[in-house]
Simulated scan of single mutants.
Amino acid sequence: MEAAARRWLADQGVSQVRDGWVSAGAPDLLLTSNQVAHSWAGDVFAEEDLDTADRVRLAFGLLDLLDDYWVTCEIRFADDSAEGPLPADVLWEGYRQRLAADRDAEAVTYSLWVDWFEDRTTSATAFAEVLGNDIDRVVAERSEPLLRRAGRVLECSGPVPWSVKEPTYRTTLRLPALHPALFKGLRAGYHDVYGDLEPSAALSLLDELDLPADTRHMAELRHVLAAGHGNHYRSPHAWDDAVRSRS
Score class of each variant (00 low, 15 high):
residue 1 M to H: 04
residue 7 R to P: 05
residue 8 W to C: 04
residue 12 Q to G: 03
residue 15 S to H: 01
residue 19 D to F: 08
residue 20 G to D: 00
residue 22 V to M: 10
residue 23 S to M: 12
residue 23 S to R: 12
residue 24 A to I: 07
residue 24 A to L: 12
residue 26 A to S: 11
residue 29 L to F: 07
residue 34 N to V: 03
residue 37 A to D: 05
residue 41 A to S: 14
residue 41 A to Y: 01
residue 42 G to N: 05
residue 43 D to W: 07
residue 44 V to Y: 01
residue 47 E to N: 12
residue 48 E to K: 15
residue 50 L to N: 11
residue 50 L to E: 06
residue 52 T to V: 15
residue 53 A to H: 09
residue 54 D to I: 02
residue 55 R to E: 13
residue 63 L to S: 11
residue 66 L to R: 07
residue 67 D to Q: 15
residue 67 D to K: 14
residue 68 D to G: 06
residue 70 W to S: 07
residue 71 V to C: 13
residue 73 C to F: 10
residue 78 A to W: 12
residue 78 A to Q: 12
residue 80 D to Y: 05
residue 81 S to N: 05
residue 82 A to S: 14
residue 84 G to W: 04
residue 84 G to K: 12
residue 84 G to A: 08
residue 85 P to F: 01
residue 92 W to R: 08
residue 100 A to R: 09
residue 105 A to Y: 02
residue 108 V to K: 04
residue 113 W to V: 00
residue 114 V to Y: 05
residue 115 D to G: 04
residue 119 D to C: 05
residue 120 R to F: 09
residue 120 R to I: 10
residue 120 R to K: 14
residue 123 S to W: 01
residue 123 S to M: 04
residue 124 A to R: 10
residue 129 E to W: 03
residue 130 V to K: 08
residue 131 L to G: 02
residue 135 I to G: 00
residue 135 I to R: 08
residue 136 D to M: 09
residue 138 V to M: 11
residue 140 A to K: 06
residue 150 A to S: 08
residue 153 V to W: 10
residue 155 E to T: 10
residue 160 V to P: 05
residue 166 E to K: 03
residue 167 P to V: 02
residue 174 R to C: 08
residue 176 P to S: 11
residue 179 H to N: 07
residue 185 G to T: 00
residue 185 G to F: 04
residue 196 D to Q: 12
residue 200 S to G: 09
residue 202 A to I: 05
residue 203 L to V: 00
residue 203 L to E: 02
residue 208 E to R: 14
residue 208 E to I: 01
residue 210 D to A: 14
residue 214 D to F: 08
residue 220 E to A: 13
residue 223 H to M: 09
residue 224 V to K: 03
residue 224 V to C: 08
residue 226 A to E: 10
residue 226 A to V: 02
residue 228 G to S: 09
residue 232 H to M: 10
residue 234 R to A: 14
residue 236 P to A: 12
residue 238 A to Y: 00
residue 238 A to V: 01
residue 240 D to V: 11
residue 244 R to S: 14
residue 245 S to I: 01
residue 246 R to P: 01
